[in-house]
Write a protein that binds this DNA or RNA. Structure first.
Lengths: 343, 343
DNA sequence: TTCAGAGGCACAATCGTTTGCGCTACTGGC
DNA sequence: GCCAGTAGCGCAAACGATTGTGCCTCTGAA
């Protein structure tokens, strides 16, 4: 046990009668480059290891303008979809020796902007951002200035920032087709947050599928749009059921929305799929065990998270290549038993 | 737009022809204490605000030995139980102006120890730790040295560290009683991770409930114990079903374990509750919509998270009071329809 | 003996803040 | 006119690490 905890370069240097310079160089693997003798090198790294000394990241960051940390901004960490992404980001960052600073933006653009400012001021080396998705002005700076960033799940058509998402259009098209082919004609969309790219793409997929089958587009069947939350799914379903008795199928644009819809349907004592069919985005393990195992559009969120860190560190560390535009992963349509065959 | 981005005290000072000292004092609210004139104060804070200048947290942390950041160590952020806690910690920290550094320990004591070392080296001002729960040696230092910490969910009887958890014993007792009172005699425990405090308390609750009703304790009905994961619930249920045809009820010690059990039961084509009954710990929104809406022991994880941050910041900031021992929150027993009445 | 060349390391400035003192220039009382 | 008192602020030394440059001491060849 050391009398003085060996917690700075200085103390190590004192103990071994060498300079801080030398210690620093050895510990940062520059020994050879500066011709430190094997003997000194060994002594220093021995001592450092013995006390598992780590150079103060604050001092280091101050000098180097790098902090070995990345920011992660997420609208709602308790949404399993985002939690899954967060997990991969955390693991990927750790693997590369980086820490993660977590910010929950609560689906609020203001808080998101604040979070980004915070991360900037903390001098993170990069940011993985699952944007709320509405305003994009606070992101404009990223296109010019050098702070690496990767957008996940949602993107902005007017900003050439690298992002990773899924092919929402095809996913929604698959789901809608499936409903149509099972004889459904009055299919309602329970939207997520209007204006966000996944929502708009899914909507487009829905509309294109209808068009393909020469079915009329009934705008009053497209409801919701305020949030991806459970409450939104619940309340929109309640209203919908009051207004439209002819709806035979629901397409929920998110796992929490589907959950809310489920709650509403249960309250109204509607059975799935006998009384009404439903398909949801975001597969989750429990969906297979529901009263009516739910047909769903699976999003590979683990891959999304992994890809996001990869793309981020491609910018942060050499080689520094950056993806212009986005990477689209395919969705996977999983058929279970929440859709009734009408014809 | 400034020619030189006003990003340091120095630049602000230059622009206004005052010293960095003065600027620093004004921005840290010490103007009055050091008799800075209103005029100077105003000019400085004006300019700072205009460029929304924030003093470099690294330099600040270096000098002050405080970083306005806390660590959050979680076994698995994709487990909704922990995600819920994480959410509250993130919000609570933000509210107080602190950042959160997230570490996923993957239910590995080694990674947990590493994470703590990392957080220490990053000079966090406090740690919220959901410990893996097995070894506690790496936590011993916390009892002496000053880094504030709060344990969540799991605690150690040999360590006087503040923690917040739920009354697992009563929770498990309630559940077991319910099964017994519905005529079940062969009730199997699907354990979580052996040796962790929630697991042991739940087990004790189970055993005490049996004793209360003068039922024999059959050790071979207590299975699992390797993890709180889905896979564990699945495989243990598979084995159990092979070995014991007489089991009529399952008590799962976690939401993922219950999910695994559900998967196994589905594979074996066993219906709930007709063929077998099940109760789970950790209520989740979807449990109400399962084929058999699941009776469950609800843990108030939002409150747990909130309480954890509160207790942490009681140590971090004045008044600095610390809870010795733990805070136990009550569980809430929710009866749904996954238990069959046998008598 | 001399000197080139390299081996082995240290000096000191720098990153941006904070803070204990101390310094200057008024003001007013006597 | 002198001096104490105070208002208003700046000096310079930390905090701990990194790094361009320079300094000394050998070794060996000429």
């Amino acid at each position: 046990m050391p009398t003085t905890p060996l917690t700075t370069l200085k103390r190590i240097a004192e103990q071994l009668h060498v300079s801080e310079t030398t210690v620093s160089r050895i510990l940062s693997g520059q020994a050879a480059r500066y011709r430190i003798s094997k003997k000194t090198e060994h002594a220093v790294s021995q001592l450092a290891r013995a006390h598992n000394f780590v150079p103060n990241p604050l001092a280091r960051g101050l000098r180097l303008k790098k902090t070995l940390s990345v920011g992660l901004v997420i609208p709602d960490i308790s949404n399993p979809f985002f939690a899954g992404i967060a997990r991969e980001v955390a693991l990927g960052a750790r693997k590369r020796g980086y820490s993660v600073i977590l910010c929950d933006s609560q689906d609020d653009t203001g808080l998101e902007a604040q979070s980004i400012a915070l991360l900037r001021s903390r001098r993170v080396d990069g940011i993985v951002l699952c944007p709320v998705g509405l305003a994009s002005d606070h992101l404009r700076e990223f296109t010019e200035n050098g702070l690496p960033i990767v957008l996940v799940d949602r993107c902005f058509s007017d900003l050439p920032l690298p992002y990773v998402g899924v092919d929402n259009l095809t996913g929604a098209k698959d789901a809608t087709r499936h409903l149509i082919e099972n004889g459904h004609r009055h299919i309602s969309c329970l939207q997520g947050l209007r204006g966000t790219s996944p929502n708009e793409s899914r909507l487009r997929g829905y509309i294109e599928a209808l068009a393909e089958h020469h079915l009329p587009l009934d705008r009053s069947l497209i409801v919701g749009g305020d949030s991806y939350g459970e409450a939104s799914g619940y309340i929109e379903t309640k209203f919908l059921l009051q207004a439209r008795k002819d709806v035979t199928a629901l397409l929920a644009f998110g796992n929490l929305i589907a959950l809310g819809a489920l709650r509403a349907l249960a309250e109204e004592k509607l059975r799935i799929p006998e009384d009404i069919s439903i398909i949801s985005f975001d597969n989750q393990p429990y969906l297979a065990h529901l009263a009516a195992p739910m047909t769903t559009v699976d999003q590979p969120y683990a891959e999304m998270g992994q890809l996001a860190v990869t793309l981020l560190f491609d910018q942060v560390q050499p080689p520094g290549r950056a993806l212009k535009g986005g990477a689209l992963l395919p969705t996977n349509f999983i058929i279970r038993r929440s859709v009734r065959k009408l014809c």
